[in-house]
Design a protein around this nucleic acid. Structure first.
Lengths: 154, 154
DNA sequence: TATTGTTATACTCTATAACTATA
DNA sequence: TATAGTTATAGAGTATAACAATA
């Protein structure tokens, strides 16, 4: 097995490269671990999470918050609805929109999945102390919050 | 425009969510900025970078270092070869493999692109001080280096 | 005139199986 | 028997245009 050391130093100095690799590791792990809940992956979970914490949220708001295009959310919401994890109700003021709500089953799955997601987060970052993890989150958040494209997500 | 504040706090506490969003911002920015060099995106650049710093590297080594499957690298390498940025040469010891080398043009493009990539990195993280950026890179790197799946990449 | 949710569709990215030539 | 590079292809993710209903 060829094991010559490569020089990757001029990639590892970039936040983009390092963030992408961390994202890759976490997302792959989550896809595996969320499977037991019938969730396809991190996006399914994020949708459940946001609806759970924001009862009556609309599809459009989910799209803004998760940086995905409306047509791509349709199938995700339909899948969760088919599995009886969420339901659509009439929006109180806007008849175009629909409020999204978790079902009882949806709340249960969300709570269980949240445990696993939290576990994975600690597990994947096991090389870091708790305070390092918090610091890391603070630094990362500073970056995407300051992004000029992020002004619409409410 | 509906601008009610959403509760996203229980997503923002996760490294996966924050790393994904930062990755999203940086990658999108890079796609735009690398276009002027005829590079399709960050992967094209990473390939140029690694070949530039590791003359004679093989496709297989690139795949390990960048976490991509061999079939998906074929088109990328061919594209860069067609644009006269790299060339394949006979491997010194293994007749199955091919060593990859930058052309003179490849070196020039790599150097110019590296400037832009470095600029984007600072630009995107403008909310952070230089020492915060270094710390962020250190913390992120600690995570993906400790990933059990990362043992093969040389 | 603009926005919500939707369909249809194209495009890209990612992943698997299988082949050849070498080791 | 295993590996490097490749082809073909399947599958998942991402993006755009256009429409009906409503604001």
């Amino acid at each position: 097995m060829k094991m010559e050391t490569l020089d990757t130093s001029s990639l590892e100095m970039f936040i983009g490269y390092n963030a992408k690799r961390v994202s890759f590791v976490v997302m792959n792990t989550l896809v595996n671990r969320l499977h037991e809940f019938g969730l396809q992956g991190p996006i399914d979970y994020s949708v459940l999470n946001l609806i759970g914490h924001n009862a009556g949220i609309t599809s459009r708001q989910l799209c803004s918050a998760l940086c995905i295009y409306p047509p791509n959310l349709v199938g995700i919401v339909r899948g969760l609805e088919d599995r009886n994890l969420l339901e659509k109700r009439q929006h109180p003021t806007d008849r175009r929109a629909q409020g999204l709500y978790l079902t009882q089953l949806g709340f249960a799955v969300q709570a269980d999945a949240e445990q696993v997601v939290a576990e994975v987060d600690v597990e994947v970052a096991s090389a870091l102390t708790a305070s390092e993890r918090h610091l890391l989150n603070k630094l990362l958040r500073k970056i995407w919050v300051s992004d000029p494209h992020f002004q619409k997500a409410g």
